[in-house]
Every structure is written in C-alpha cells, then in structure tokens.
Design a binder for these strands. Sequence first.
RNA 1: CGGGGUGUGGCGCAGUCCGGUAGCGCACCUGCUUUGGGAGCAGGGAGUCGGAGGUUCAAAUCCUCUCACCCCGACCA
Length: 557
Amino acid sequence: MRYTSLFVPTLRDDPADSEAISHKLLMRAGYVRQLAAGLYIYLPLGWRVLEKINRIMKEEMDAIGAQEVSMPVLQPADVWQTTGRWDEIGPEMFRLKDRSDRDMCLGMTHEEIMTWLAALEIRSYRDLPQVWYQIQTKLRDEARPKSGILRTREFIMKDSYSFDMDTEGLQKNYDLHIKAYNKIYSRAGLKFYMVESDPGMMGGAMAHEYMAPSPAGEDTVAICEGCGYMANVELARSVPPAAKCLESPYEEVHTPEKRTLQEVSGFLGIDPSGFMKSLLVITEEHGPVLALVRGDQELHELKLQRAVGAFRHANKDEIKDHLGVEAGFIGPVGHEIMTVADESLKEGAYISGANKKHYHMKGIVPGEHFTPKWHDLHEARDGDACSACGAPLRTEKCIEIGNIFKLGTRYSEALKAVFLDEEGLEKPIIMGSYGIGPARIMAAAVEQGHDKDGIIWPAALSPFDVQIIPLNISDEETAKVAEQLYKELKDAGMDVLLDDRDLRAGVKFKDADLLGVPKHIVIGGRGLKEGVVEIKDRASKDVIKVAPADVLKTLGG
RNA sequence: CGGGGUGUGGCGCAGUCCGGUAGCGCACCUGCUUUGGGAGCAGGGAGUCGGAGGUUCAAAUCCUCUCACCCCGACCA
C-alpha cells in the first residue's frame, strides 16, 4: 500500500480526552476515531489490525473443528423472556420495538439465539457434538464506557458455543477452546494468563478468563509464583498474614467517640488485624445480614454477593433499627441477625463494636460468642499466602481479553434444546460458551507494546509487515530503489507500506514510529552512496545496513 | 446512578474570576527557499466561543436551564 493512497490522519498531540495509553496512541497514530461515548470508528489502519486478529481467531477456531455462522444482532424479546434474561438484565440491554410494537433487543451476547437454533435443529445424539462460532457485533449500554476501545457500547466479539450430550463432551470442547485460545493469544504476541473466574450471570458451573497484564486493566488477578494458581480477585482464595490478636478476656471497653477502625485501633494501641470489621447489608433473600472481615482485610463485595445473594448497603436508620446502635459501634454479638464471617476469623479473639454507644468488646471468639456462617469474603492481595501451597501471592492489573464458561443446561433447559440419547431418553444439551474481544486484544497489544514515540506492534497484528521510508522521494535514485523494494517485498507476500509522500525525513520518521510497524527500511542518499539501505527494528531501534538486493533475504522473506 | 472536570477555527490551548473589536501554536491553501528526526520566510482561508433562555447600552465572560464528552466510584453477559 502506498501511503499517499491510505487515509492515516496522525495527530501531533495527545487527544485531550484520553487517559489510557492505548487510547492516546490509537488516536494519534490514526487507527481509530471516536463517534460518541463508547462508539468508535475503525480507520483503515485500525481495521487492518482487527482483520489480522479476526483471521488468527478464525484459523484457530477452524482448527478445533468449530464452524463459523452469523447470527442476527436484532433479536426478538421472547427468546430472552424464555430464559429469564429479558428481566434479569437491566438497562445494559438496548431494547426497542419494531413497527408492529413487538419488543426487540440488540444482542449483547448470543446464548439465547444459538440455543434457539440448537433447539430447532438438533434431535439426536448423532447430531452432537456441535461447535458454532461467529465474529459479530455486540451492543451493551454500558454504565460507563471508558479507556478508548477497552470498554465500548458496540464492539465485535468472537463468540463460540459448544453443544454436547454429556459433561465429558463439554470438558473436551472446553479443553479444545483452551488450546485454541492459548494459540490465538500467543500468535497475537500478548503476555497473558488464564485465570479462574466468576461465572457471574452466565450462570455456569465453571469459568476462566484470559487476562493480559496491563495497568490500564479493570480487573485484578492474584497469582501464586509457587504452584501457579491464578484467579481473579473476585474469587481468588488467599491466606492473610496471621492476625496480631490481643490476649484479653471477653469484656467491654470504653471507647468514647472512637468510631472508625483507625480511631479505635489507635486509641487502644492494637494492630488493625486484631479487630473485626462489621458491615450491615440488606439482602433480598435473608433481610439484614452482618458481614465480618478482619480489621486489616478488605471485604470483596462480589464474594459477599455469592454468599448471601443480591444486597445493598444498609443506611444509617436501618443500622440503628436492626442493631440498636449507630455505625461505628456495631458488632456481631447479642443479636439474631444472620452473620457471615470471613474464614480468616476462625482463629483468634477479636475486638469489635459492642452494639452500645461508645463501647467496643474485647476478646470476642467467633464461633463461641456468636455463630457465623463461614465464607471466603476478604479480597486477596499482595503478601497473602496461596491457599493451595502457601507460597506468596502477588496481584496484577489485567485486561480481560477473553473468557470461557461451562454453561451446563441453563439455556438448553429453558429453550428446550434437547436430544434423544442412545437409549431414547430425552436429555438437555450440555453447553459451553467462549468469548474473545478482538478490540481488547488490539488495545492490550498497544498497552504492552509501546514507547515514548508510539506503538510497537507484535508482528502478527501490525497493519503492515514492513514500512519503506524513502527519505527524499524526489531523489531519482532513492525513488527507484524504493519502488524496486516495494515490488519485490510485495511479490514475496509481505504487507508493505511505502511512504511515498513528498515530505521531510523528520515527519516520516515520526509518523513511522507512531504507526508501529515492526520493521522500517530507510532509504537515503547517505546510504545509497555506500550502496546500502537501512533495516531498522522498531522495538530496539537497531539498524543494520544491507544492499538493496539483500533486504528480502535479511527480513527472512 | 453518586462525585469531580471540560466544552472557544481541523487538533492542542489562552482569554472567563474583574462584561467592552475573538487570540496563540500546530495543521490547512499559495509562492519562494529547504530536504537524514515533526523546516524557514511571505501571503491567505477558516470560529453564531456546546445549546436555549435571561440580565445588560454591551455577554466567550454574569444568572438559569439543558446537552455532550472525560476521570473516580457504583455497575458490568
């Protein structure tokens, strides 16, 4: 491709309204433009990158026997009503009516439609297994689109769905997807982890996420260097350092006007780990619930939600109504409210509110002075020990670039996607669903590959394999060598960008660094006098000088 | 949804507090010079200052309402 026939509007300055590095660089280098919050235009360069990612995904999905299909984005409500998600999913779903006043929605995922098709067409165990996938637009009215193309309201997803007769089949397809996903992310040149994750509203039994480490990520992953355990902190198990509990009899202590943990801890001169923090929440299932974590730990709300169901924080009046005392002095002893406690509180005696204004209680032994339901509620963090092997855990910010779910029969039962097995018994199809966000791969690649001058693409994702930079296009010799190389490399099957613009060298160098094509071929009068051109590596900036005739060989073409 | 911020030529910004001719840099167009890291000189085009209403002799500037976007949080199949 000739630069003069390619639309690449590069910017000299960072756009004002951007924070994430990938957002800034993809804007500046002319890959994307923003239409509105969470809606992005992919310019020619950006689309080339996405297409490279799509090609890799297709090749690897095809390699495990998955079949590409295409499902409508516009979908009737009744299928979603049948599975219950029409009501479960809130304002995140774009809803509309057609001209006949029928409820419709824009697909945010395709479990329903894929399962609908399976229900329509699959009759016998002989029809199984099936794996169907598509690369299709999804729409989600995100509460807060952010970070450029990392969280958008409209995006392309590679989503696949497996249909099996039994759990062994599901496991096989799950493993095949793991294999395919590992290859996809490896080919994309990303640093990534596969971690245990929360199935969430997918309602499945098991789930993993693929995570690309980056400070721009929204998720945090706990990683054990000892045994390799990796999990999203939404469910990561960990053993916090031992508590420094006070040896004390069970007794009240006067703590006037000392409400916060810091205040009480400082007032009594006792380490925060010797305390219990109490949080009153109002749940849909159990009414008020008191949740306890150690004073030095943080409660993870998703863990609490798994333990007690949907909840909200109690307000001041509710705290008084249920516990008889204002916030700051609430504790687990002496009331009938359902209590859940973090497992790290199983050992030791703790200080907590006495449910009496200006008093705390020392020497509370969970299980003795009150009876909680035990759950893992604390958030894993750096310095905790791995619950499996005891080695230290560390945490890392990550971008979620894909996920895989064992769905089981949640959708097949609702939509009556059943088959007859060898004995003639009707059974629901066992399903899995598997997603990859190509735009997130693109953003993660930029987050992981850039320097102060611009993007550094992994070879497989770059919009071009090599960029030819003739420094002075009006110099006859330079132009001639550039054209020859352009033709030769193209004929060898490479994606070549020829910067044929009549611009000064500095501009071309700056733009080339911004665009991030991995190899640059610099052709200038200086080199041509010695009979050489320069092959420059974008990442290392190393330059090797070779005769024009040796360029293809040197590039490994 | 809660909190914070920003809207001024294509882009980045100043001007707003304290009302009085709409500015700067880059980009763009023309000409000449220049040509290995975002060139120089000269000339030129381009903005109803997010929108609506109000106060005033006079509003980018003050007041009211509203829209959009960004950031933090909540939320996130």
